[in-house]
């Protein structure tokens, strides 16, 4: 690193995790009740049983749009997509996370 500190600018990014208050999960109809007994809130989908498919929770979409409007997002996407982040790890039964990289619902960046 150069000794001249003025050549460097500090940029801090925050990754904020928030749990939405929904009755069921993001991609499955299973409950999210706090304190329920172990393994009582898991379906074939979360266990990554072959042939199961995710179904997006509509409430989550509504919350995402509300959040976007609340923080003054310029863009609420008319078309949005999910992306898979693939990696092997014991807490990831499907071998991927479902995320939004290319076409998120809320995008703070000004459109190009």
């Amino acid at each position: 690193m150069s000794s001249n500190k003025t050549q460097w600018e500090t940029v801090i990014g925050l990754e904020i995790h928030a749990q939405l208050k929904t009755a069921s999960k993001l991609f499955a109809g299973t409950n999210t009740t706090y304190g329920a007994s172990p393994n009582s809130q898991v379906s074939l989908l979360e266990a990554a049983v072959p042939g199961t498919l995710p179904v997006f929770n509509e409430k989550v979409l509504r919350y995402a749009i509300r959040f976007g409007l609340a923080v003054g997002a310029k863009v609420i996407a008319k078309e949005s997509r999910f992306d898979r982040k693939n990696y092997f790890y014991p807490d990831s039964p499907k071998g991927y996370q479902i995320t939004q990289l290319h076409h998120p619902i809320v995008n703070m960046a000004p459109s190009p």
Binding site: A47, A48, V49, P50, R84, N86, F88, P90, P93, K94, G95, Y96
Partner: peptide, 13 residues
């Protein structure tokens, strides 16, 4: 397929 078949990891079934 490379993504769909990543669930076959020998852990759960």
């Amino acid at each position: 397929c490379s993504s769909n078949l990543s669930r076959f990891d020998g852990i759960r079934y």
